[in-house]
Design a protein around this nucleic acid. Structure first.
Length: 164
DNA sequence: GGTATGATTGTTAAG
DNA sequence: CTTAACAATCATACC
């Protein structure tokens, strides 16, 4: 079977100036480039140009799913890092049964994640890619619906208390 | 009892 | 171009 890892490209690369010429080289070379010259550098230049840098000023205060913030926005799929966490968590707990919680694991994960080789991370990236493809589709529908008329809603799910 | 927080990186949509 | 938000998860903290 000629499966191999080739579906990573996907059609989303309509605007991706990277792909052709790949066969010419004959070697895989992978796509280490990705987008190193986009937000990564942007952050640097910003820090250089600006002084304070953002430094995560917001502290990342996300959460509160209890509040109905999901509205109609498609939920974001887990990133490659999260998939890696899933596997890492199991191992980490086995090696460190005394660990307290994800906070510690997250730190260990992040550290290891950076040390991991691209090829090893690629497998997780690949998974995330498929997820994004699906999410992309959902987003298209969401946008379309939004333009059409977000007002609409079929509030079908209002199960509040169905106790007769 | 329940909610909020914290920590990790990656990805996205919007401004 | 840049920013802020959010994704999973669970021990912990507060009232």
């Amino acid at each position: 079977m000629a499966k191999e890892t080739k579906k990573s490209q996907q059609s989303r690369s309509s605007s991706s100036p990277r792909a052709p010429t790949e066969a010419s080289t004959g070697q895989m070379v992978l796509k280490v480039k990705q987008s190193e010259g986009t937000r990564r550098s942007a952050r640097l230049s910003s820090s250089e140009g600006k002084r304070a840098i953002s430094v995560q000023k917001s502290k990342t205060k996300q959460k509160k799913k209890s509040a109905k913030l999901d509205a109609k926005i498609p939920k974001k799929p887990p990133t490659a890092f999260f998939y890696f966490l899933e596997d890492f968590r199991k191992e980490f707990q086995e090696q460190n049964p005394g660990v307290k919680s994800m906070r510690d694991i997250g730190r260990a994960c992040g550290e290891k994640w950076k040390t991991m080789a691209y090829e090893e991370k690629v497998q997780y990236y690949d998974i995330a890619m498929e997820k994004r493809a699906e999410f992309d589709k959902a987003m298209a529908e969401y946008t379309e619906r939004k333009e059409s008329g977000e007002d609409e809603e079929t509030e079908d799910e209002e199960e509040e208390d169905w106790s007769p």
